[in-house]
């Protein structure tokens, strides 16, 4: 059971929901929490467990072999991303611009650009009671999140069986990284705030998941502030509203110092239970 937790923009409470939901579910059930916001993985600030596995993650990029190269320049010509540049006496490769399409490498007549792995980040696997927490961290200076996201999902799918509830904390936005993170999931939870910004961004996010033909539901964070636009929109468009997390300064304070919320705010616990029940129902329906 794969569930993505996503939002149109950053700062709407995506991480807060992910870690609290994972911790809540873990009281009854095994759960995997996977932080795919690889540029800014913050879930680890809230969930501390025992590190049980760690691996470096690589992507393939071309590497110049000077002895074989005739400086014909074909590599630069075929690269659509300015990732291979021919200078007077050498070829330079920029791993961050490279999309690993293999064109330069395979079309080079002298085989002077073999593909080699370069490190892009690290994957860590922690265990805390019933929670398996997996996070990947893009190395500073690395720009492409997508290959690391797809490899992290592969790790999770390879190590946990199909029935386990897996929560994927997705990167913000509506561009490639979030599409990569939600491509294979069974269900998407969209979290937003009941404000004009939140309303505008969640509509974009809904458009995105619809385009990907995903089932989805909405959670409203900071409920009580702002207006009813999101609520009304969900109702008018038959979008399941999974939970309403109240607006409360105390919650913001707990977040700021990296603490779990539902253990201290009963209303949040109740709302998480609503989401959990919904997930269980989905799981039942999936089996049939």
């Amino acid at each position: 059971m794969k569930i993505a937790i996503a939002s149109g923009k950053g700062g709407t409470g995506k991480t807060t929901l992910s870690v609290n939901l994972a911790a809540f579910i873990s009281e009854n059930d095994k759960v995997v929490l996977c932080d795919l916001d690889v540029e800014e993985p913050n879930s680890g600030l809230f969930i501390k467990g025992e590190l049980i596995h760690e691996e470096e993650k690589f992507k393939m990029v071309p590497k110049w072999v000077p002895d074989k190269c005739t400086l014909c320049g074909l590599c630069q010509e075929v690269c659509n991303f300015n990732a291979v540049i021919k200078l007077e006496k050498q070829i330079m490769v920029f791993p961050d611009l490279c999309h690993t399409c293999y064109a330069c490498s395979e079309l080079c007549p002298e085989e002077a650009l073999p593909m080699v792995p370069v490190k892009m980040g690290e994957l860590k696997h922690f265990q805390l009671n019933n929670i398996s927490f997996i996070e990947s961290h893009l190395d500073v200076g690395r720009e492409q999140a997508v290959p690391l996201i797809s490899q992290t999902i592969e790790y999770v799918e390879a190590n946990f069986d199909k029935d386990t509830i897996k929560l994927y904390d997705s990167p913000p936005g509506t561009s490639c990284p979030v599409i990569e993170a939600t491509k294979e999931v069974d269900f998407v939870i969209l979290i937003t705030e009941p404000t004009p910004f939140g309303f505008h961004d969640v509509k974009l996010a809904i458009e995105t998941v619809k385009k990907m033909h995903k089932k989805f539901g909405v959670v409203i964070n900071r409920y009580g502030i702002g207006n009813d636009d999101v609520l009304k929109y969900c109702k008018d468009n038959d979008i399941p509203l999974l939970a309403k997390i109240p607006n409360d300064r105390f919650i913001a304070e707990l977040y700021s110092s990296g603490e779990l919320i539902y253990t201290k705010v009963p209303e949040v616990k109740k709302q998480l239970k609503n989401i959990y029940d919904y997930i269980l129902k989905l799981k039942e329906n999936n089996k049939v």
Binding site: F81, N82, I85, L87, M92, L97
Partner: peptide, 16 residues
């Protein structure tokens, strides 16, 4: 017209 990698491309031109 370049979406990404404007820096290295201009640098290459400059070095020529």
């Amino acid at each position: 017209g370049e979406a990404h990698g404007a820096g290295p491309k201009t640098a290459q031109q400059l070095l020529e």
